[in-house]
Every structure is written in structure tokens, then in C-alpha cells.
């Protein structure tokens, strides 16, 4: 039976050290007998370091990251989401959503033009209307789109 990867416990260890280091810079509390603002982060940092050592020696097998096309899909989706959240204000919600949906479906591997282009535009419009007029939530719309909607 193979053991699990060492990467997760090492990451936990590094994170724990990072938390402990960052909590050194926290101002002490100013009330008498208050354990202070750094109290909780220090417990967390120390706890993570101790647990990482335990987990380093007690490694159970685990699934691990996918390979090939599946990994590309996951990374591609994360990158698209990052682009989407940065474009939502400059481009407005309807346009950025249509773009996101189109590219996302493309990454998944669909090449049918109706699914790639028409459906995203319709869906993003429908969601915009649902929020704006159905639920009273204002989403960003640029002037260009504001005229249309």
C-alpha cells in the first residue's frame, strides 16, 4: 500500500510557520488580562505546525490531482474566474458573464457554435434580468449595455 504525498503536510507546515511569523507583528492588547489579539493566530500557527509533523509520519493514500485534460479544465476554469471577477466592473455584468460562459463551455470541450455563443448571451441576459428586476439587486452594467437593458 503506497503512502500519500508529502506535499500536503509540507504545505501545512509552511502555512503554520507563516501564520506564526505574521502574528509576531500584531499589536498587543491594551486591556488588563486580555490574552490579546495575537492569542488566536498563535494557537493556530502552533497547532498547524504540530499537526503537520504528525501528518508527515502518518500519511494515508489520497486521490491527488488529476492529470492531462482534466487538470487543464480545472486550471482553465480558475483562470477564467479570475479574469471574470476583474472584468465584471469594467465590462459590466451581462457582457463579462456571456464571455465567461462562452469560454468556459469551450474549455469543457464543446465546439457547437450555438452552445458556445448564443446560449451564453441569452443566459447572461436572463440572469441579469432576474437579479435586476426580479430580486432588486443592482449589478454593474456599463453605459453601452445600460442603453440596451
Amino acid at each position: 500500500m503506497s503512502k500519500g504525498s508529502v506535499i500536503p503536510p509540507v504545505l501545512v507546515l509552511l502555512f503554520g510557520i507563516g501564520v506564526l511569523a505574521a502574528s509576531a507583528g500584531i499589536r498587543p492588547g491594551m486591556l488588563d488580562q486580555d490574552p490579546g489579539p495575537a492569542f488566536m493566530p498563535r494557537i493556530c500557527g502552533a497547532g498547524l505546525i504540530l499537526l503537520s509533523l504528525y501528518l508527515f509520519f502518518d500519511r494515508e493514500p489520497h486521490e491527488g490531482l488529476p492529470r492531462g485534460g482534466s487538470l487543464v479544465k480545472v486550471i482553465g476554469t480558475a483562470v477564467l474566474l479570475l479574469a471574470y471577477l476583474n472584468l465584471i466592473e469594467p465590462l459590466g455584468f451581462p457582457l463579462s458573464t456571456a464571455l465567461f460562459l462562452g469560454f468556459e463551455v469551450f474549455i469543457i470541450g464543446i465546439r457547437n457554435p450555438v452552445v458556445l455563443v448564443a446560449a451564453p448571451i441569452m443566459l447572461s441576459g436572463a440572469i441579469y434580468y432576474l437579479f435586476r428586476y426580479g430580486l432588486d439587486v443592482a449589478l454593474p452594467a456599463t453605459r453601452l449595455f445600460g442603453v440596451l437593458i
Partner: peptide, 8 residues
């Protein structure tokens, strides 16, 4: 006081 009727 909300947004739905804003643009209209």
C-alpha cells in the same frame, strides 16, 4: 428605496 425602477 431600491434599485429596480432606477434606470426605467
Amino acid at each position: 428605496t431600491n434599485t429596480s425602477f432606477g434606470i426605467r
